[in-house]
Amino acid sequence: MALETIKWLPSPNFDDRDKTVPIDMLVFHYTGMKTGAAAIERLCDPAAKVSSHYVVEEDGRIFSLIREDKRAWHAGLSFWRGARDINARSIGIEIVNPGHEFGYRPFPKVQIESVKSLAANVIARHAIPARNIVGHSDVAPARKEDPGELFNWRDLAESGIGLWPGDIAQMPVSYDTLAKGEEGMAVRALQDALQEIGYEILPDGRFGKALTQVVRAFQRHWRPERVDGIADPETQARIYAVLSEVRRLT
């Protein structure tokens, strides 16, 4: 869909941005409601106190709800790379999909093509770095699952939107599986890596509930074939590969 055909549907759910805080993040969501119309109605309902800058329908139509120079209310309690007010520094894009509660399903190609066009435009205008293009579950792993494991992050990265790790088969290190209840230096190294990527995690060397949630969020983004919160060898290899890519681009 051509960006010039974006439809303006103003939502009252916003406030002013702090002009000293740059827009340096892009956050993808799924709507998680039965229909796109229901989602837009809620995002425009003053009582709901939620919103996003854009909504992309399954047929590729794009709706603009909040001006980009305003702070939309899409991320909630969240964290990324030391920042807690993600709404203050981000653009939020809601992608229509029923989500895990109402029948999660693949995102149509026409919808993803519109997402790519919109995201590329936003990224170019705000110079958003690849490491700051994330999902709601990345910034709120204890609360959120969206946009979920069916969202093709690799496809977006190949179009210049976000990052994807290199060939993990080239990594010389093998790993033992780590899971909830384990402790030690390998767990601490995993926590340090996830923290450097951007996740909120206390590096205490203990594999508890919080680390399980963060590993699950990482898997939804970078290892969608397995989303169980267990750091098996391939998940760990991908974590360190993403970290390497983050460092390369920093």
Results as ranks from 00 to 15, higher is better:
Q111R: 05
V115A: 11
H136C: 15
N121C: 04
V122M: 07
S114K: 04
V134W: 09
V134Q: 10
I128H: 00
V134R: 11
A130Q: 12
A120H: 13
A140S: 15
P129V: 02
S114H: 08
K109P: 11
S137K: 01
A120T: 09
E113K: 07
L118M: 07
V139I: 14
A124V: 00
V134M: 08
I133S: 07
I123S: 06
A119N: 07
H136N: 15
S117Q: 14
S117L: 14
A119M: 07
I133W: 12
A124T: 01
G135I: 03
V110D: 15
K109C: 14
V110T: 15
I128Q: 06
A130V: 12
S114L: 08
R105Q: 15
A124P: 06
N132F: 01
P106W: 03
F107S: 05
G135H: 01
N121F: 10
N121G: 03
P106S: 02
G135A: 06
V122N: 09
K116L: 10
A120Q: 15
R131Y: 06
F107M: 02
R125H: 11
A130P: 10
I133R: 00
S114E: 02
I128R: 03
I133F: 05
I123Y: 10
V139Y: 03
V115K: 01
I123Q: 04
V139F: 09
H136D: 13
H136T: 11
A140C: 04
R125T: 05
Q111A: 05
A127Y: 01
A120P: 12
A127R: 10
I123P: 09
P108R: 14
I128S: 00
G135N: 00
N132C: 08
K116A: 10
I128E: 02
A127V: 11
S114P: 11
A124D: 05
S117V: 09
K116C: 09
A140E: 02
L118E: 00
V122S: 01
P108K: 05
S137E: 08
P106F: 02
K116E: 08
R125Q: 03
R131D: 09
G135T: 04
S137A: 14
F107R: 00
E113G: 06
P106V: 03
V110S: 15
A124M: 03
H126P: 04
E113P: 08
A130I: 11
D138H: 13
P106G: 05
V122D: 03
H126A: 06
Q111I: 02
I123R: 02
I128W: 06
S137M: 12
R105E: 10
N132K: 02
I133N: 01
I133G: 00
N121M: 01
A119C: 12
E113H: 11
E113I: 09
N121H: 15
L118P: 11
N121E: 13
S114G: 04
E113M: 08
S114D: 05
S117T: 10
F107T: 05
P129E: 01
I123E: 03
N132I: 04
V115E: 06
V134G: 06
A124W: 02
V122A: 02
S114T: 01
D138Q: 14
A130L: 13
A140F: 05
H126W: 10
